[in-house]
């Protein structure tokens, strides 16, 4: 397998023996995994397992105490403008005066640039349409339902025209209709961008998923383990956008056991 090609071209996220601690508390211990460009990946784990820490490291909001992280061939900080991020708990102040289109426009925000260009406006319109919230564009964001607000946050992430889309618990507080619409949007995006969904549902993931990772205990510390998943015909609901895959927690695949690596090595 050509390691250089993997690093620079086909690998979207690479964690190399990454460790992280909050003071004395070891949260990640030599986590070593990668996700290929265009893959639809799921990161699962119970609450408090360290999923949020993996996300923070990935987004450059925290720095590893040991190891190395590459996102889209760059450092997480350098890759920020190519990442679309849907947070789990977006600060939501019902008294904050802001319209839906202004929230979505934040997806085009840059460090110190004041003006939004025509390209930015077009990207915002596209994102509104893709997330199926174009009809809500002029409405006040606080007046929306919980499900509509989450779809607007998806639109905000899409406005960045991301190469990597990261969604933290995307179906939390969503009604069935919004869940269906969200997975339709993600289905359309699959293959065009790398998608990483983070969820505390450790049993099942959407059938759109190509690879499943679990944050869990491994030896003396926590790490990220690649699992197998199999179609669970008996489980089908809007929560997974249709058919679901059952995560097989008793399996532990080597890091190069993914389809991307197998394809590259042929």
């Amino acid at each position: 397998m050509d390691e250089t090609k993997l690093t620079t071209m086909s690998v979207a996220i690479r964690f190399e023996h990454v460790s992280f601690s909050y003071g004395e508390l070891r949260v990640l211990d030599k986590a070593h995994f990668h996700i290929h460009a265009g893959e639809f990946a799921a990161l699962v784990g119970p609450n408090g397992s360290g999923k949020t820490t993996v996300l923070k490291l990935l987004l450059g909001l925290a720095r590893p105490t040991d190891g190395h992280i590459t996102v889209l061939g760059r450092s997480p900080e350098e890759a920020r403008n190519s990442i679309g991020y849907v947070p789990q708990h977006a600060s939501y102040d019902p008294a904050f005066p802001i319209s839906v289109i202004e929230v979505v426009r934040m997806g085009r925000l840059r460090t110190s640039v004041r003006r939004y260009t025509a390209t930015d406006d077009q990207a915002v319109q596209n994102a509104l349409a893709m997330a199926d919230v174009a009809d809500l564009a002029d409405r006040p964001y606080p007046a929306l339902s919980g499900g509509q607000r989450r779809r607007v946050l998806v639109a905000r992430a899409l406005a960045a025209e991301p190469e990597l889309l990261v969604l933290d618990e995307p179906t939390a507080n969503m009604d069935a209709e919004s869940e269906t619409r969200l997975f339709e949007t993600l289905g359309q995006l699959k293959g065009k961008a790398t998608i990483l969904i983070v969820t505390h549902d450790t049993g099942f993931v959407t059938a759109l998923t190509d690879s499943v990772f679990c944050v869990g205990e491994r030896g003396t510390g926590r790490s990220v383990i690649r699992h197998q998943a199999t179609l669970a015909a008996h489980v089908a609901s809007e929560q997974y956008g249709g058919p679901a895959l059952q995560v097989l927690h008793d399996t532990e695949l080597p890091d190069d056991a993914c389809r991307g690596c197998i394809k590259d090595s042929i």
Binding site: E77, R80, R110
Partner: peptide, 11 residues
């Protein structure tokens, strides 16, 4: 509005 998101965008 959303400090964490603003930080992700490099603000």
């Amino acid at each position: 509005f959303d400090e964490e998101f603003a930080r992700v965008r490099g603000v």
